[in-house]
Design a protein around this nucleic acid. Structure first.
Lengths: 164, 164
DNA sequence: CGGTTGGTTCGGTTGAAAACGAACCAATAG
DNA sequence: CTATTGGTTCGTTTTCAACCGAACCAACCG
């Protein structure tokens, strides 16, 4: 199983970079998240196990777990007669919702630019600028629909034959 | 024109926050980018002017301009008999291409997970996991097409009645 | 050649983010 | 009640990104 471990390490590394750069997560949070996705998507891992695996301090792990919980990237469940929390990645659809947030922020920006241009009409390329913004906004609308479709489909799969 | 300046400042501020959080740009780079978009989308601004407007040091402006160039968020042109570079935001389609990069990174990750699952089949939820990944990959494919359409349309507008 | 302009490079400073250890709390077990 | 387990909080240290000034380079001008 040496091979498996190596493969896992490589992937977790990849995850780290991806989440740090594209989703703005702190390094340890990224590694925790990657670890959960690769190791135990259903069963989850306990706090203790995470401390062990990531080789970080309890306090750091605690802080970063709470961050991931707040961002809804992970969630946890407990078993009767066991105080430990079992952490696991939240479902994909929750995570895709993040794209929607970014998109909305982007649309807002475009609207603001449009208003600004409209109001002051000072750029030489006023007409063209408006056209391009219009295309972008249209694209954004399509994108939004696409995202919502994907979320719906995934929810269906995840809830239909629900585990947990 | 006091009103205009105020409006501009507010927008640049907004831009700053958006680009810092969603695109991982350093603060100064965000402000430079925002300034260029709002001030002079066609004419552009020179290095000197940017130093003046942003009120930052030459070195910082230099560093951040080069970052924006590397990320293809801006470009520059020169005029014969004038050594100065005129910086301006690159066209929207180039910037949208950035989304494609992120998307590709995400698809790669999914593929890796799928391979990993396939190879080791150790998670209890193997079947379901594969289904969800499939939906996600399908969604990614649709998204990609959408992006390329948008890019094509924008290119058409920008090149048809080409300025610069 | 020397001076000016346009811009880059390099070493140092600084403030915020990230990680840590130790003390602490709350729940349960014995 | 005491001991243990599971986890949080708090104050401190460490690390690193962002910015700066000063020196430097390269091109052109006279």
């Amino acid at each position: 199983m040496d091979n498996l471990e190596k493969e896992k390490q490589k992937l977790i590394e990849m995850f780290g970079i991806h989440f740090e750069t594209h989703h703005n997560l702190p390094p340890l949070a990224s590694r925790i998240f990657g670890t959960l996705i690769l190791n135990c998507r259903i069963k989850g891992l306990t706090f203790e196990e995470l401390v062990e695996i990531t080789n970080a301090s309890k306090s750091s792990v605690s802080t970063n777990i709470n961050l991931l919980l707040k961002l809804e990237k992970i969630n946890y469940y407990t078993l009767p007669g066991d105080r430990r929390k079992h952490f696991r990645p939240s479902n994909l659809s929750d995570r895709i919702k993040n794209h929607l947030k970014i998109l909305n922020s982007e649309v807002q920006i475009c609207d603001k630019i449009r208003e600004f241009d409209e109001q002051f009409k000072l750029s030489a390329d006023y007409e063209k600028g408006q056209q391009i913004l219009a295309v972008y906004l249209e694209y954004a609308k399509d994108f939004e629909k696409l995202l919502q479709d994907a979320i719906a489909k995934i929810n269906e799969i995840e809830n239909n034959n629900s585990t947990s």
